[in-house]
Amino acid sequence: MNKFLQRWTVFAGLVVVWQLLGMFAEDPFFPPPSDIVTAAWEWWVLEPRNVTEHILPSIGRLLSGWAIASVIGVALGLLLGRSDRAMEYAGPLLVFLRSIPPPALVPVFLLLFKTGTPMQLATIIFGVIWPVLLNSVDGARSVDVTKVDTSAVFQIPRYQWVLGVVLPAASPKIFAGLRVSLSLSLVLMVISELVGTDNGIGSQLIQAQREFDYTRMWAGIVLLGVLGYGLNTVLLAVERRALAWQPRSRDEQHA
């Protein structure tokens, strides 16, 4: 309880200060939090159509892009990580592709796919696959020699080697990559929507800006913050369960 207070006092204090300043200063760029909440209420709760037409498609694109990138990234990463030959060929290419800023590809994908969901998905997938892929490669390489030997001596079948040894051994690194790519997919979702479509949270942000409706703009920003926070929290919970087998000392670090 004490910890809870400690944690949220400063946060609540800042919100209150903002509220007071906002009420007295009446700066159009910084509306008080109460106005933002009201705007959010009117925008999304009183008009559920906005949720189904903008927020849900955004989340859908974000999650499907991230999921596709994750599956491809992990599969390809484990394969490359266990094959020195493949890595020799693909390594330099990976380094180059990874360093292309994904937003710079938005125009490329725009020309390739025109606007709409395919272009947005392509942007998200291409942008977020690298952390997962490179971490999976790293993780697959980190299987120690004794475990490799043990698996070879017991002549385990191939599927057991991949799913029972390489995947779990690489999983701490994979999860680290998944977390990075999840927050990156939020960024890319917004970017692709700022340019590419007339639906989604990003396009609503731009819309609010064009209408000089700064309160709604703030509501959109807060929504994205909450969304990022929520997604990260869920993934952390999943990670904690999936990696519960790790020796205890790590849990203490998290606490």
Binding site: Q6, R7, V10, L186, V187, G228
Partner: peptide, 29 residues
């Protein structure tokens, strides 16, 4: 640790806000 504990909630809230979401705001300001 005290400062960290106190600012934790603020940081955890600010961090996930994607910087690109701030583009419209920064443009007008």
């Amino acid at each position: 640790p005290a400062v960290r504990q106190a600012t934790r909630a603020v940081i955890e809230f600010l961090r996930p806000i994607p910087s690109v979401a701030l583009i419209p705001l920064a443009l007008v300001m």
